[in-house]
Design a protein around this nucleic acid. Sequence first.
DNA 1: GGTTTGAAACTTTTT
DNA 2: GTTTCAAACC
Length: 768
Amino acid sequence: MMDDLQAILNENQLEGITQTEGPVLILAGAGSGKTRVLTHRVAYLIENKHVEPYHILAITFTNKAAGEMKERIHKLAGDSGEMVWVATFHVTCVRILRRFADRIGYDNRFTIYDTDDSKTVMKEVIRKLKLDPKRYKERYFLNKISSAKNELIPPEGYAAAAGSSPDVLLVARAYAEYQARLRSNNAMDFDDLLMKTVELFRLDAEVLNIYQSRFRYIMVDEYQDTNTAQFAFIELLARAHGNLCVVGDDDQSIYKFRGANIRNILDFEQHFPDAKVIKLEQNYRSVQTVLDVANSVIQNNRGRKEKKLWTDNGAGERVIYRQFDSGAEEALFIASDIAKQQRFGNFNYRDCAVLYRTNAQSRLLEEQFLVSNIPYRIVGGVNFYGRREIKDVLAYLKTIDNARDDLACRRIINVPKRGIGATTISRVADYADDVGIGFYQALQTLEEIPNIGRAKSKLNDFVLFIEGLKAEAEYLSVSELIKKVLELTGYVAELELEGTDEAKTRIENIDELVSKAVSFEKDYVGEDDDGRTMLSAFLEEVALIADIDRLEGDDDYVVLMTLHSAKGLEFDNVYLAGMEDGLFPSFLSITADNPDEEIEEERRLCYVGITRAKKRLVMTAAKMRMIRGETRYSATSRFVREIPKELLNGEVYEPRSYDNFTVEEEDDTVEEEKSVERKAHFRRTVPAPKKSPTTAATYQKKMSRDFGTKIEKNELDYAVGDRVSHQKFGEGEVLSINDGGRDFEVTVRFEGGNVRKMFASFAKLTKV
DNA sequence: GGTTTGAAACTTTTT
DNA sequence: GTTTCAAACC
């Protein structure tokens, strides 16, 4: 094996693989083959060091990274690789807590709250503490609490750690109340998963011992993004044997806002004094010019571990920079350029990615991609599992699965409308609170609840409905159960009747959830050591999925996403849009109390963006941009200005008038002329496409954007005057068919005289 | 109890 | 410009 390795790896990579004992820090520059080192390291441990796969733990940040690593380990080490524990921090902690959470006072069947759920709870807390919701927003408290949890500070210790100003004391109270509510709901939020696992390890030597003796070789990917809680978790586990290998790049630390502590990687040698440090500086991804640009930007940061990426991939073209008058022109250029690259056969759509600082920027880009008929997909924005219809369906499943998820139950008790109003719900909730039982539990003792009067029978119907589903859940698969719920509640039928574009999208989302359930069932091998049902396992997997994890498939489309989402990915042809001071680096970072630190974080983000490019990199900016309905004028990003001229194709214009985000009336005339000229030139080379001639095509594209599903406007197999049959309304006569552009609008008179208009693709009418 | 309408907030990044 | 939330109305 060693001979093979020597042939495909450089010296430093080899060292990273074979240095298996003791603490090791691998400083892996962007594109230096760190995943390769990690996977080969695992294989090497198994095959050459005869370590039991069972004793190896590899931790990542995203499910996607974990999946890829699993796959590659499997390829290298065969079936024994299956036994290696490869998972994200969160999944790892959940697995541990599912076995032992009872030792710290939780039920092992605790539920996991997402950010939406946390928000709902925090709203209640604010109400309970009688705070002015106008003045104190949930987000404020939740951010503070999240930071505290990432620092392993419990509610009791909050005031001591943060001071004694009135605001701090208020946060401490909110934190305590919030945590008490989670506890009584038997729920944990994302941050709890880590904090509580550390708490468990610290309080229960037996449990810690179990995992210490299991995980004898530990590897952590993206170590620069670990926070204090994650560090404590790793440190506790590694303490027994000391075989800890962390891989990361301090220049790619971009999650400070989420509690990531860059000191974890910078001080690794202090934390683990006999640590071996290995630097991977040869880049296998990008051409030299891209690396030079990346180096020229990142070297402006202080307090970093000095390294210089190099490659033997060749020099490559200069990096392109273009500044436009408006965000729309910028978007038009990017779309046109991608179309051109594709037409000339330089790049496929899938080789292109557009990266930006904020999700809001995606809108303009999306519009241009629609008009230009370029297939694309947006990552991020509203999380798939955060969509209303998905949350509704999942809330049903949660209620069926675990009667203790109050939020889930309250969410769907009146969805669809059952005539159960806010007043009734809060009376039940109050009662449940007083007695100290769960919401659903309270519903089962309706007789005891005061003041619910007429609503009682409605509530009872709901309980019977859920109980019926619970009985069915015993023998139905998850996907079957979802379909059953949809059928019995009429959820989809209701959306079909609505017939709006939005309803259509919602139905597609639900379909995707069903597909997800089906594929989950296929992979599910009953790996529940704790006697959990398949339904529980499904809900858990779904709770820990991020949007980026769904990015896959062989379709040919351009990817649009934030710079944060792009970490770990690579593309032949990359566009960095919105290179403007105030947008990137963000206004908030420039005006922060500690601007140097904040801007360094932004610069690292820029570094991440640049190093995604393999062959070609294009940076763009707009002088004028609409932000929150206001027009803002910006100068070229300071990061672009940090790039030496000889590496850039394109000039950096620096009109004084755009400084400080204000417009001055006296425009530099020379500058103005240049701008006009540039604009004219741009218009000549890339004619602006007319407004989309067929709204139909545009619409279909828009519909297909998120999930790649394709809407076909099929020919209808019935005509005016035909008898047709509808699933719900029965038979009827077709009165008229209108081509509504995106779809056919069919009017039918059903038996009983009901005349209904509906879209053909929903109604699924069949000729009789 | 449900629906409609208008105001207000939102925009940094997410497991 | 879009979405969310509450008050007013049905």
